[in-house]
């Protein structure tokens, strides 16, 4: 299942992640090897506890592998110090979480520019910020604090924050999990647009077949192993596969 090394933005090589030791040890990721190509929207699916989130977090360097290697571009994240990882996160990665995780003390605009502002040498690309805000429909809410925004608006701010540094890859963990179907539909449409128009790479962990149907590729994980994958999935394809796995 190894993709061509060409144009691979992120990849895991023989990645194993074990939690706990001895009898209590749980293998969340078991010798997994996978790559994510530039400009591709990938859904990672699997039953609860299958290891799909672990895969994503180990790939992004937020979690450390027990063995194997995790690359972002040509950089093995397992060799980096926390300082180097921090810099890597703010410049080449974006994150979108189920529960948004905006900084409550900062307004929408400040939340969006946070990754750029954290880098003393970087300048905020105002035109790009405006463009993002308009496309996401939050241009009139930039001065508001997160507590003054609706759930959908908060998630769109989170998306803008992930997009802002023009990252190599965006990792999204159940981004539609806390949204209603209409709002989540809009969000997925926007993510799709980002991939198509800007060539953005997105890796999205989800258990929502509808969400997965927006992707170019879907990867199925079970017991920490990659068990299958498909291209341009429909909702029915995904539902069928999920039923088969569980």
């Amino acid at each position: 299942m190894v993709d061509s090394e060409q144009d691979t933005v992120a990849r895991l090589e023989r990645a194993t992640k074990t939690f706990g030791t001895g009898d209590a040890a749980v293998t969340a990721l078991d010798d997994a090897t996978i790559g994510f190509r530039r400009g591709e929207f990938t859904a990672v699916m699997g039953p609860s506890g299958s290891g799909k989130s672990t895969l994503m977090y180990c790939q992004s360097g937020l979690d450390r592998l027990t063995s194997g290697r995790a690359f972002i571009g040509d950089v093995d994240v397992s060799t980096l110090t926390d300082q180097e990882l921090s810099v890597l996160r703010r410049s080449t990665m974006g994150f979108i979480f189920q529960s948004f995780h905006l900084v409550p003390a900062l307004n929408a605009r400040e939340n969006i520019t946070l990754p750029v502002d954290l880098d003393r040498d970087a300048e905020v690309d105002e035109a790009f910020l405006d463009e993002l805000a308009v496309v996401l429909g939050i241009e009139h809410r930039l001065g508001n604090l997160p507590s003054q925004l609706s759930g959908g608006q908060r998630q769109r701010v989170a998306v803008a924050r992930a997009m802002m540094p023009r990252p190599e890859v965006i990792f999204a963990d159940e981004p539609t999990g806390a949204l209603d179907s209409k709002t989540s539909g809009e969000l997925l449409t926007y993510l799709r647009t980002a991939v198509d128009d800007l060539g953005q790479t997105i890796v999205m962990v989800t258990h929502d077949a509808v969400a997965a149907s927006h992707c170019d590729r879907v990867v199925y994980v079970q017991d920490g192993r990659l068990v299958d994958e498909g291209r341009n999935p429909t909702v029915d394809d995904v539902l069928g596969k999920i039923r088969e796995l569980s």
Binding site: D82, S86, L88, R89, P115, L118, P165
Partner: peptide
């Protein structure tokens, strides 16, 4: 805790 983690995920270093 959550806010700090979010800031860290956005690329803030331990020192910052």
């Amino acid at each position: 805790v959550g806010e700090i983690a979010a800031t860290r995920a956005a690329g803030a270093s331990i020192r910052q």
